[in-house]
Structures are given as C-alpha cells and as structure tokens.
Amino acid sequence: MTDKTATIYHNSRCSTSRKALQLLREHGYAPHIVEYLKTPLTRQQLAALIAAAGLEVREAVRTKEPLYAELDLADASDEVLLDTIAEHPILLNRPFVVTEKGTMLARPLEALQAIL
C-alpha cells in the first residue's frame, strides 16, 4: 500500500495519458483515475483545475480537435471556452495530474516529473 496519492484526468484512448498513468504507478502512486469523458468536469471544476496548473484557459484546449474548428473557437473568450469544454469534454487537453506537489498538464510527459 502506498501513501502517495494522485488524481489523473484520463482518456484511455490517449497515449500520453496512458503513459502518464504508467509513470505515476512506476513512482509508487495509487492514482485516482477520473475518466473525464465519462464523468465530465463542471465549468467551475475546469476553471479551478486550469488555474491550479498555472495555465491560461486556451492552453488547456485541444485546438487540433476537429470540434474546435467546427465551433469556431479560435477567437473565443475564456468564458466561452470554459463553457464549451464543460459541454464538450473532448476539447480538454490531457492528461491533467494532481499530486501533493502540485497540478499540471502533463504535456510533454517529461514535465510530469516536476510533481512526482
């Protein structure tokens, strides 16, 4: 049993997310896995997660996701982006990881080392 806890906002179809989960386990974490596509975050949860990671809202958006262009989000405000991610969680970049050392978007994966 480990006392190292972490939460990963995970998409099992994403190779970076799978690698981040593996890295957490290799470092002795017993991660709580939040499959955010199945259990979407609220707008408030998204705003808090993004802020905790020290990111701008736009940095947390998957701009290469086709839906981003379809919804014409290139010039959208942070408020619109948060509302849209809450409605369409596929637009959230991943994986976000939370440990006792901090919160971060693990892109690139090596960045995750800072909070392990």
Results as ranks from 00 to 15, higher is better:
Ala6Glu: 00
Ala20Asp: 00
Arg25Val: 15
Val34Leu: 12
Tyr36Asn: 10
Leu91Cys: 08
Arg43Leu: 12
Ala76Leu: 07
Pro95Val: 05
Asp72Glu: 10
His10Val: 09
Ile115Thr: 09
Val80Tyr: 00
Glu35Lys: 15
Glu56Ser: 15
His32Gly: 10
Ala47Phe: 06
Lys4Glu: 00
Tyr68Ser: 13
Thr5Trp: 00
Pro66Asp: 03
Gly28Arg: 05
Pro108Gly: 04
Glu56Lys: 15
Ala30Asp: 06
Gln113Phe: 05
Ser17Met: 03
Ala114Ser: 14
Lys38Thr: 11
Glu100Gln: 12
Gln45Met: 08
Asp75Trp: 00
Thr63Asp: 00
Leu105Ser: 05
Lys19Val: 10
Glu26Phe: 02
Thr16Ser: 09
Ser17Cys: 04
Asp75Ser: 14
Asp3Arg: 15
Glu35Cys: 13
Val98His: 01
Asp3Thr: 15
Tyr68Pro: 14
Ala76Arg: 08
Tyr9Gln: 08
Ser15Val: 12
Ala30Met: 10
Thr99Asp: 00
Cys14Pro: 15
Ala106Arg: 14
Gly102Tyr: 03
Thr99Arg: 06
Leu105Lys: 03
Glu100Asp: 10
His10Ile: 09
Thr63Lys: 12
Leu41Val: 06
Arg62Lys: 08
Ala51Phe: 05
Pro89Lys: 12
Lys38Val: 10
Thr103Tyr: 04
Thr63Ala: 11
Lys4Cys: 13
Pro89Phe: 09
Thr7Ser: 06
Val61Lys: 02
Leu71Glu: 01
His27Glu: 03
Ile8Val: 14
Ser12Gly: 15
Pro66Ala: 05
Glu56Val: 14
Gln44Tyr: 08
Leu49Cys: 06
Ser15Leu: 07
Glu65Ser: 12
Pro108Asn: 05
Pro31Thr: 09
Glu110Trp: 00
Arg107Asn: 06
Tyr9Asn: 06
Pro108Arg: 07
Leu24His: 01
Leu71Asp: 01
Arg62Glu: 02
Glu26Cys: 08
His88Cys: 10
